[in-house]
Amino acid sequence: MDIAIIFDNIGIYLEGLQTTAWLVSLSLLLGLVLAIPLAVLRTAKSYAVQAPIRAYIYFFRGTPLLVQMFIVYYGFGQFEVIKTSFVWPLFREAWFCALFTFTLNTGAYTTEILRGAIEATPHGEIEAAKAAGMSRLLMLRRIVLPSAFRRALPQYSNEIIFMLHGSSLASVITLVDITGAARIINSRFYSPYEAFLTAAVFYMTLTFMIVFLVKQLEKRWFAHLQPQKTS
């Protein structure tokens, strides 16, 4: 082990950390924005509304993230229609393809998490909302969604960690995230332990930070649900 390699090249890792951070947080944010309306529609009674959402979820949850990323990054270039359209300058870029795939992927998982939470809304709350004369939209905004978010949070924190770990795949399509930094160091110095163990430490630290932050969030938002302290 030669720790000096890492200290001399810590800059690459910090750059990688930056890439991982924005890639993961932006994908999660956009995925969540996508998932909220989809989850609501997914609980609709109409089959015509449900079917396309189901197909989307089935595809993105049933296939590996790596293959999805390859379809977008390598695959879209197969079509002249896309190559000559205005979106091509974006889909030509590795960072955009990664962001695009990650967003759709986490969107699918988040939709399922939220759907479960929405369907678990106690029936009485909805009846009460109706009895109080709320419209569907108002009921969604005031009653259903806030309590669904609360129920979804523990599972969503798992999804955040999965996305963090999944983002390491971005290094396969040339992006220099934390894993990409490790691969550069490994190929430059032929020092796999140093390179990948450092990356592992970075990811572990991030994972524990996320777990800790979500715990704090739970305590703050859901203080009324914490187990009662018996005096």
């Binding site: 960690i161 963090l164 396969v172 390179a195 990948f196 572990m204």
Partner: peptide, 21 residues
């Protein structure tokens, strides 16, 4: 705890390249 903190890809590269060395 360790396994859940590290991405699969990083572990695989560590085993593949590190194991080689």
């Amino acid at each position: 705890t360790i396994i859940r903190g590290i991405p699969d890809l990083v572990l695989m590269l560590l085993v593949f390249f590190g194991g080689q060395v």
